[in-house]
Each structure stands twice: as structure tokens, then as C-alpha cells.
Design a protein around this nucleic acid. Structure first.
Lengths: 207, 207
DNA sequence: GCCGCTATTGTTCAAGCGTATAATAATGCG
DNA sequence: CGCATTATTATACGCTTGAACAATAGCGGC
């Protein structure tokens, strides 16, 4: 019988390709459309290979979820500069591509819908959420200190919850109905809203 | 062979039970766990009956999605009283049970993750979103008029987008990590935030 | 240039999927 | 009460699924 030729992928690379293919399939066909066979096709390999790299499909999906969380939070977690700039960049990053696009929210929603079902995904989610909000809370504490505003823990907590909610909500609106907004409109609304919430300028007119 | 006894359900009732069972299964087992057989068990009937009431499983799921949207938006859409009260109630309703609970967001997320895949679900989603935001926008127009603030269409639009985002985002936070917040904390933060955004009291301390 | 290791293929399997259909029990009506 | 209607059960069918496994092709070390 004629066996296909193939090449052996370098260390770790195939693994990454499989995770990426998993995400592609989930975003295009939904969780239930992301079958082992479909994922393998997308990755350009045969289905059997999946089980060479992962103990089960579920484990591969869980790792794919980690990759999604990372792609959604990494950029915003590494903003640099003075507190005002960091806060501004944090908002802008979360409300523009590639963080804000329809693929992202499809993936995010697919996993969120499983959080109640799968304890493994639930833990990954919880970690990501706590990290994200703490990042924002630290950002706000620095910012308020610079602005000579009250920055006690309780105040920062409340601001972090509100602004986290605002950013998440606008992110969702943008992802799901981007065509309903003008270019840059969501970012502008977010900046103005945060200024109103904090009662302080974040220099959103600078850029 | 022994055939089970059963009773014929009254007009429309069985249909409703099947939709409810569909939602139960989706929230408990995820979209892919909501199989025809599992749904039938939950509804206390056999699988074959599904196709007596629905053309296909997909059609049943689509109707189930309509039911979810309705349960998430109906209450808030029918607030009554003066503009200030209506705005306050609108916020409170969306951030307390039964709108804000983990079952709701599981269902919401499950469907959102399919919006890119299934055009039927996409249309249902779009309708629901537009209706929801228009409701909020009208509410804000009335409120701003009463407060003698500028209430032109563009201003209302921006406020509606921001507050819709805020409420949605806080709704998600509450649904996914309710245990991280104190009783009533999210509602309080939302009220304070909306007051800051609009620069007007909504009497959130009254109740 | 051969050899051993293993990454990859290709096939198979049982379980579960949505759907189709025939038999039948429950109900309303004369 | 008996009959027609139909809601419901029960079974079957073809297909897809995740997984298991043997065969083998590619590749690094010698």
C-alpha cells in the first residue's frame, strides 16, 4: 500500500501546530465541530497523531484554552511607561485587534460555556480572571497615586471591578458587532468613560 | 413486549418542556453534551418525540436560544415608573438573579460561540442585542431629559454603548465569579459608576 | 551507509450521534 | 361505548466520534 510521505516536525513545533489547529476549528465550527479528524486535517497530519502528543482530546483542548487566555491577557499585562500611559495602552490594547475580534470571542465563549462542565477549564479560567483583574488593580493604584487621589485598597478594588467590567463589556460589543461602531469609537468611549469614572484625565486626547 | 404507559401533554406544553430540557442539558453538559437522547431523558420522554415537535434538533436549539434571549431581556425591558426609577431598576435587574447566575452565562456563552457558525443563531443574536441597546438608549434619553442634560441622539448613543458595556461586563463578572463579590456589591458599583458616567444622581442610595 | 528510535500513518473498533419509521397507547368525539 | 386521531414509544439505520494499535517512514548517531 502507498503510504504518504511526511516530515518529522522539530521539537515542540507539531504540538503548537495542533493547538493552533484546534483553535482554528473551534472558532470556525464550534466546540462540537472541532473533532480530532478535523483538527488533524487543519494541522496537515492524520488523526492518529493527536494521541501521540496528547493523552486525550480533552487534554489538548485544555491546553488550547490556556493558549487563548494567554493571547487575550499577555499583551495588556506587559504595558510599559508611566502609569497614565500604561492605563491608556491597557484599554486600547483590549479594544483593538488582535485582542478584539470575532475569532477571539468565539473561542472565549466556547470555553466559558464549558467552565461549569469541566473543572479543569474552570481552574484555568479562574486563574486568568484573577490575574487580569489584579493587573488592572495595580495599574489603577499607581495611576491614582500619581494623580494624588485616594488609592486605598478598597477604592482600587471597586474601580478595578468597574473598569474591568466596562472593558470586558465593550470588548464583547466590539467583537460581536464591530460593524455597528465607527473606527476607534469604542476606544474613545472607553477612554472618556474611564476618565469620568476616575474623575481624572488619562490624556486620551494625546494620541 | 411491554410498552411504557404515558400521558399526552396539553397543547404546547410538551414543546415548552423540551425547550427547557434542552437548556438544562446545555447548561449542565455543554452544547455537545446536549444530545437528543439526553434532552429527552431530561424531559421525561423518549428521543423519538423530539422530531414530532421539531423539524430537526437544530431547529429546537434555535428556539431554545430565543427563549434564553427572552429570559435575559424581558424583565429589564419592562421596567416601570419615572425615568430615574426605571434606570435604577434596569441596572439592578440585570445584575441580580435570575438574570445574573452561572446557568445564564453558560447558556449565553454556548450560543455566542455558535454565532459565527450558524447564521440562524447570528440573526437571533443580532435582534436581541439591538433591541436591548435601544431599550437602554431610550431609557437614557428620558432620564437625561428629566435631568435637563443634553440628550441629543449622538450623546445618548455614546452613553448607551458605555453603560451597556458596563452592565454586560459586570453581569459576566457576577455570573462567572459571584463568590468574589459581597452581597449587592456589583449593583452598588454599577450604580455609582453610572452616576459618574452621566454626571447625575440616579438616587442609588434610596433603596 | 546502516541501524535503532520514534514520529507519523492508516486501519479498526465500540459507542454514541441525529434521524426515520412502524407499532401502539391515550384521548376526544359521535 | 367504539372508533378515528395522533402523541408517544420502541427499534433500527447509516454515519461520525474518540481512541487503540500495528505498520512504517524519516532521521540522528555511529
Amino acid at each position: 500500500m502507498n503510504r504518504r510521505t511526511f516530515h518529522r516536525a522539530p521539537e515542540g513545533e507539531r504540538r503548537q501546530e495542533l493547538i493552533e489547529a484546534t483553535l482554528d476549528c473551534i472558532s470556525e465550527f464550534g466546540l462540537k465541530g472541532a473533532t480530532v479528524r478535523q483538527i488533524a486535517i487543519r494541522a496537515g497530519v492524520t488523526a492518529g497523531l493527536v494521541r501521540h502528543y496528547f493523552e486525550s482530546k480533552d487534554q489538548m483542548v485544555a491546553e488550547a484554552y490556556r493558549a487563548v487566555i494567554a493571547s487575550l491577557t499577555d499583551k495588556a499585562a506587559h504595558v510599559e511607561g508611566d502609569p497614565e500611559t500604561r492605563l491608556r495602552d491597557f484599554i486600547a490594547i483590549n479594544l483593538t485587534e488582535p485582542v478584539a475580534d470575532s475569532r477571539s470571542i468565539s473561542l472565549w465563549a466556547a470555553f466559558i460555556s464549558q467552565v461549569r462542565v469541566d473543572p479543569v477549564l474552570a481552574e484555568i479560567h479562574r486563574d486568568g480572571y484573577v490575574t487580569f483583574r489584579n493587573t488592572l488593580q495595580d495599574l489603577l493604584a499607581d495611576f491614582l497615586a500619581v494623580k494624588n487621589k485616594p488609592a486605598d485598597a478598597e477604592t482600587c478594588r471597586a474601580y478595578a471591578i468597574a473598569i474591568n467590567g466596562l472593558v470586558d463589556g465593550l470588548w464583547i460589543e466590539g467583537c460581536l458587532a464591530g460593524d455597528l461602531f465607527r473606527e476607534g469609537e469604542l476606544v474613545a468611549i472607553a477612554m472618556a468613560s474611564v476618565e469620568a469614572l476616575l474623575g481624572a484625565s488619562i490624556g486620551s486626547d494625546k494620541q
